[in-house]
Simulated scan of single mutants.
Amino acid sequence: MSRQLNMDTLRQNFWKEEYLREKMFRCEWHRKYGSTVKAKQKAKAAARLPLALPTLHPKAPLSPPPAPKAVPSKTPGPPLETPIQSEMYPVLPATRALLYEGLSHDFQGRYRYLNTRKLDVPEMRYLFPITTNFIYGWQLGPPVKQELVSCKTCRIESFFRKNGAFALLDPRDLAL
């Protein structure tokens, strides 16, 4: 493709001014915002780096404090507060140990712990119903399997299909 030859001095000066003006705008923007953009880029790059956790060394056991001298106190101290009781029963140590074994990504660790806790009924996990939804099934016990009764004149054994939808009765079954 060939260059346009219809460039006169007026047009050349226009493009020269446009180029210089754009260059000045870029320099001005870089002077105003360049440092903040670089700081943001450094922060993003630092966020992508993996975190290195410090190594914890076992601490030496502390020696027991010396026994205080028996001095009768003249004023009684403030009453000790009772510890706040949790809403949940404590977790079994074997179940809690699952939490610290492996990674959730490999279906271990927290993943296995939560799936194990999910198998317990709410009555075994909580002291009392926490939400109103808990009230609807609280202490109902295991579901009771009902036997299906079929009669000689009926052609179906249940009102429900295997997938849970209603089965339509045969009109011949209704006329007894």
Rank of each mutant, 00 (worst) to 15 (best):
P90A: 05
S150D: 08
Q146V: 06
L103Q: 06
T131C: 11
I156C: 10
V91L: 06
Q146F: 12
G141K: 05
L92I: 06
R96T: 01
L114W: 10
D170P: 00
E87F: 06
K118C: 06
G137C: 09
D120E: 11
D170A: 07
P129A: 02
G109I: 00
P129V: 04
D106M: 08
V149Q: 15
L169F: 14
S150W: 08
G164S: 10
A165W: 09
G141I: 05
P129L: 05
F128V: 04
L103N: 12
P93I: 07
L148Y: 13
V149D: 07
Y100N: 13
A165Q: 14
V91G: 01
L168S: 10
N163I: 01
L148N: 11
E147K: 14
D106H: 15
E87A: 12
A97C: 06
L103V: 03
S150R: 15
I130F: 10
T132H: 12
G137A: 10
A165R: 13
Q85C: 02
L140M: 06
W138K: 05
N115F: 04
P83Y: 02
E157C: 11
E101L: 10
L103A: 06
L127S: 05
Y136R: 13
I130Y: 13
E123P: 01
D170V: 02
N115V: 06
A165C: 07
P143A: 05
Y113D: 00
L92F: 12
P129R: 04
T116D: 02
H105M: 07
W138I: 01
L103E: 05
Y113K: 03
L99N: 06
K162M: 00
R110P: 00
R117Q: 14
K162Q: 08
I135A: 09
C151F: 14
L92K: 14
Y100L: 11
I84F: 03
K162D: 07
L98E: 02
P83C: 00
R161Q: 12
F134N: 15
S104P: 04
E157V: 14
R161V: 05
L127V: 09
T132M: 08
R110K: 08
Y100A: 13
D106R: 14
L98V: 03
E101P: 00
T116N: 05
R125P: 01
F128L: 03
V91Q: 01
L98S: 04
F160S: 09
R112A: 13
F160G: 01
A94Y: 09
F159P: 12
L168H: 13
G137V: 09
F159I: 09
R155L: 15
F160P: 00
T116A: 13
K118S: 10
L92Y: 13
P122T: 02
P129K: 02
P122S: 05
Y89S: 00
G102Q: 01
R155Y: 14
V144I: 14
F134P: 00
E157S: 15
F166G: 07
P83N: 01
R112G: 02
A97F: 09
R110G: 02
T131N: 12
D120G: 00
V121L: 10
L168V: 12
E101M: 12
S104A: 15
A94S: 15
P90L: 06
P129H: 08
L92C: 12
T131D: 10
L92R: 13
L140G: 08
Y136L: 14
F160K: 10
Y136S: 11
